[in-house]
């Protein structure tokens, strides 16, 4: 307990916690829309596609400044997202195939570049691999402020456009019929998704970022039938995952953060799947049993009369 208090007394740790909390919140919120738009895997592709961008940015500048690496990650992340959309809209290839294609090409290229970086004589390269698995402890104050600020902006934009994103997600053709600029809104949503993935990479890592996007959302779906509530719950689940994962990783001295954030999110998902009222597995089983008993009773009565 005193360890925990001591840790929280450290200003940097507090910032890291605020950062991962806001990151979890933002990915929970955007992940809900991604899930309902059936774009879960696009987040995964974008996260993987960020790797070559990070390496290229590092190769060009030779420094590990977060903002430079993030620009690199955003560029290749966006490029991957639009390549997927382009393949789907201009060929007979289906979305899952396009995602698989783009994800592996970009990630493969990223690994090649990463190997190149690691073979470089300069000593500055260490720590770049933290980007692959996520290491929140490596975050410094200014990184976290950038991350927290970006996450806050993403959440605000999504809240402002809640109604527009809702109708676009449920019925895109109707949204177009209403006169909404659906092309622009799709583009904007994809950009928000890329942004949240990119700012999450340093804390969660390229491989696991998609899990932080989707797991809180799918867990939240068990608790409610209302979109606004689902988004709030998903945001809270994401925030809890971010905080708990960071605490565990800080306690464990050098344990990677990303995996523990994702493990926490997965635990919340399992609890939701089992115990949620109405949609949870156990609630459904109980309801089914009650119904069967009633049927049997009714049947027995009929048999007697």
């Amino acid at each position: 307990m005193s360890d925990l208090l001591m840790m929280l007394g450290d200003a940097n740790t507090r910032w890291v916690l605020v950062g991962t909390m806001l990151l979890g919140l933002a990915s929970g919120v955007l992940g809900s829309f991604a899930l309902l738009r059936k774009q879960s895997l696009i987040g995964d592709a974008v996260a993987h596609a960020a790797l070559p961008g990070i390496c290229i940015a590092f190769l060009f500048t030779g420094e590990k400044s977060l903002i430079v690496l993030l620009i690199g990650a955003t560029t290749t992340g966006l490029l991957a997202a639009y390549c997927i959309q382009l393949i789907v809209s201009s060929s007979i290839i289906k979305e899952d195939t396009a995602i698989c294609l783009i994800l592996s090409v970009f990630f493969g290229f990223g690994i090649v570049l990463l190997t190149k970086v690691q073979q470089m004589p300069s000593g500055n390269k260490s720590g770049l691999d933290a980007f692959i698995f996520g290491q929140a402890a490596s975050l410094v104050g200014s990184d976290v402020k950038l991350m927290a600020g970006a996450a806050a902006i993403l959440i605000i934009i999504t809240m402002l456009l809640f109604k527009e994103f809702k109708v676009l997600t449920f019925d895109p053709e109707f949204a177009k019929g209403l006169g909404l600029p659906t092309g622009f809104l799709n583009f904007l949503f994809l950009s928000l998704l890329v942004a949240v993935v990119v700012i999450g990479i340093q804390a969660v890592g390229v491989i696991l970022m998609a899990a932080l996007l989707i797991t809180p959302a799918i867990a939240a779906r068990y608790w409610t039938n209302s979109l606004s509530k689902m988004i709030i719950i998903s945001g809270i689940f994401g925030a809890i995952s971010g905080v708990v994962g960071t605490l565990i990783s800080t306690f464990g001295q050098g344990l990677p953060t990303g995996p523990f954030i994702v493990v926490t999110a997965t635990f919340i998902f399992l609890v939701s799947m089992l115990f949620a009222p109405e949609r949870g597995i156990i609630a459904k089983k109980i309801k089914q049993n009650i119904y069967h008993k009633q049927l049997n009773k009714a049947g027995a009565k009929e048999g007697m009369s």
Partner: peptide, 14 residues
């Protein structure tokens, strides 16, 4: 989709 009938009808007002 997580929404109710009234919400869908409200979309007509958007």
């Amino acid at each position: 989709f997580p929404t109710n009938a009234l919400d869908v009808v409200l979309m007509g007002r958007y």
